[in-house]
Amino acid sequence: MEKKQYTSPIAEEFAYEMRRQTRKAKIINYAPVGVLAFFFALLSAIAPGFLSLYNFRTILNQLSVPLVMTMGLTFVILLGCTDLSGEGLGGFCGCLVTLLVINTKNANDFGAPAFLIAICCGLAVGLFSGFIHVKGKIPSFMVTYAISSIMSGFAVMSYRGQPAMAKDPLLTKITSGSVLGIPYLTVASLLVFVAAFFLQNYTRFGAYVMAIGDNEAVARNTGVNVDRIKMKVFIWAGFCIGVSGVISAIRVARGDVGLGKDTVFPAITAVVVGGTTLTGGKGGVVNSLVGALIVTIINNGLILMGVNMYIRSALQGVIIIIAVALSVNRGKKVIVK
């Protein structure tokens, strides 16, 4: 008898609307997997030699650099920031490696620790970018864009004119070796993925990154040291860029500043196509793995079909535009600048 009615029709309408949005978001969540399946099927049909064991190995090989880059970038984008420093920084770390192992330019022979040194450099530069972004309140895209230019300058400076060729037998050993048919370099990149997965899901850090991207004010009010987390993210991104620079240097055994070129673009494509939104707080490393796979197989398929490399990079641009346009929140009135 005493059944009081609390809710009004308009509140029910509101609840219904929210439910609809939740449902829609769920579907969109799985879209990247669908896209991957679609391209896989399409390329199997039209690209000659796509469906072969040899080609799968090639794909795994091609996956390594974008995957590592993507893992770093994912965290940055989850924050709602960007890191464009990969081009210069990746090149610099690559150059550094070739100059530290046995090479044509100098008498260094550090062996494997050379990798570590180069990666640490990436880490340090990441910290520097993060510091300037956070403390100077300068938008991250601007900071990292400038840092990229600075680091390419240092990269060229490191070898002055003629790039160093690495002569270390260690490198050939690494490039030719494999476990269970998976090349060492790909294994390394998968390890980075595992680390990223762990960071995101099983540490406080991962939860805080998500929180800052979703709602920075809430994170701050809960006592999270937002600035420190942001800097840590840029350090992690620097680490990943360092690793990817080292991997590319090992692969071509040549320390050219161009090593970092055309790595940032596919990485951003992969993150966005995978469903991590540029506004932050949504998506994650698994999404990015799917994204990296999509980007890699498309690129691989286009190579197999004999498409010009310039057209390939232009196509990548078109893909990002479409992916971002599909993923942005159309209801928002004020858009990200």
Binding site: M210, D214, N215, G281, K282
Partner: peptide, 9 residues
Amino acid sequence: QEQSLIQNL
């Protein structure tokens, strides 16, 4: 009044 939960956690 406004929710302060982190959606993706």
